[in-house]
């Protein structure tokens, strides 16, 4: 039993680590989509963030500078998205696809040009990364039976960006539901005409939503390349941006529900690595691919109305014409 609990704890710990970039990107997706802009470019922004973070950290030796520049890179990609689909009223999906392909090409091209390592960035020494933070009193808590282990494994010992992601969720909820900006943001995603007739700029509101989202994706990228990992490798985002988008939809465009979806998707992946080759009672061995595909299966089922009823923002995908 104790062993099972310990295994579960390790899985939950892995869940949190896997879910961190998902949470950040999902919050980014919520900002953008609640303002009425479809955001399939989360993937590209995440990838750009990861590349820029690792590059700047490798060149300057500062993780903080890497993080800052990653956020700027995410924002820059967001601004391209905004320029195309807010300013020029282009198709939001096409723009998203363009950004994803651009990010994929640009990170490799620049990576090869800068470091000549086939698209990778050099490995960062520990002191140039965001390393796990040990919380106060971990050793003291060890003497307490169950709680001590939970405190050491689950609560303490993550890098700073994990806690940033955990903070981003309530902050997003707070901004969305309890601030003037949030109220207007939700309104612009539902009835932009009303926001416009109240004398508030639809364009500027949507740009701001995208900028916040870009910064969040940048943090998520930095997490991948200079916190969880120690360098950038090509296609590092590996579909995480799309899983985050699935989590946004699965969470019905609500921060807390999307957070739960991220944890669930993260847990599925964490469990997959633990269950690989293990035969479960009654079911037998579950194929890894099936477990990894679960987020997509669940999202499809949800969208089809088989699990609950999705309610996307009313004005999503629709360019605003004055």
């Amino acid at each position: 039993m104790a062993d099972f609990l310990y295994q579960l704890l390790l899985s939950l710990d892995a869940t949190l680590r896997i879910a961190t970039p998902l949470m950040l990107c999902a919050m980014a997706g919520i900002f953008s989509e609640r303002s009425g802009i479809v955001d399939i470019s989360l993937e590209g922004k995440l990838l750009s963030g990861a590349f820029v973070a690792a590059t700047i950290a490798a060149l300057t030796g500062s993780a903080w500078l890497g993080l800052g520049c990653a956020m700027l890179a995410g924002i820059f990609m967001s601004l391209i998205h905004g320029f195309a689909c807010i300013t020029h009223r282009g198709d939001q999906v096409v723009s998203g696809v363009a950004i994803n392909i651009l990010a994929s090409g640009l990170t490799i091209v620049l990576g090869i040009a800068l470091f000549k390592r086939g698209g990778q960035t050099p490995s960062l020494p520990r002191e140039d990364r965001f390393t796990p933070i040990e919380w106060w009193g971990v050793d003291m808590m060890d003497s307490v039976p169950v709680l001590g282990t939970i405190y050491r494994q689950l609560i303490s010992g993550h890098n700073m960006l994990v806690y940033v992601a955990l903070l981003a969720v309530p902050l997003t909820a707070l901004i969305l539901y309890r601030s003037r900006f949030g109220l207007r943001l939700r309104a612009v995603g539902e009835v932009p005409e009303a926001v416009d007739s109240a004398g508030i700029s639809v364009t500027w509101l949507r740009y701001r939503a995208l900028i916040v989202g870009g910064a969040l994706c940048g943090i998520a990228g930095a997490y991948l390349s200079i916190a969880q990992g120690g360098n950038f490798v090509r296609e590092m985002s590996a579909g995480k941006g799309y899983i985050a988008l699935a989590a946004v939809i699965f969470g019905n465009w609500k921060p807390l529900s999307a957070f739960m979806a991220c944890l669930m998707f993260g847990f599925l992946e964490a469990a997959t690595t633990r269950l690989e080759g293990v035969a479960l009672p009654l079911i037998g061995e579950v194929p890894t691919q099936l477990m990894l595909a679960m987020p997509y299966v669940l999202t499809v089922l949800l969208l089809a109305g088989f699990i609950g009823k999705p309610r996307p923002p009313a004005a999503i995908g629709r360019p605003y014409h004055k």
Binding site: I80, F83, A84, G90, D91, S95, V97, A98, I99
Partner: peptide
């Protein structure tokens, strides 16, 4: 894609 699609 950006120029001939999104920025058409």
């Amino acid at each position: 894609i950006l120029f001939s699609g999104a920025l058409a």
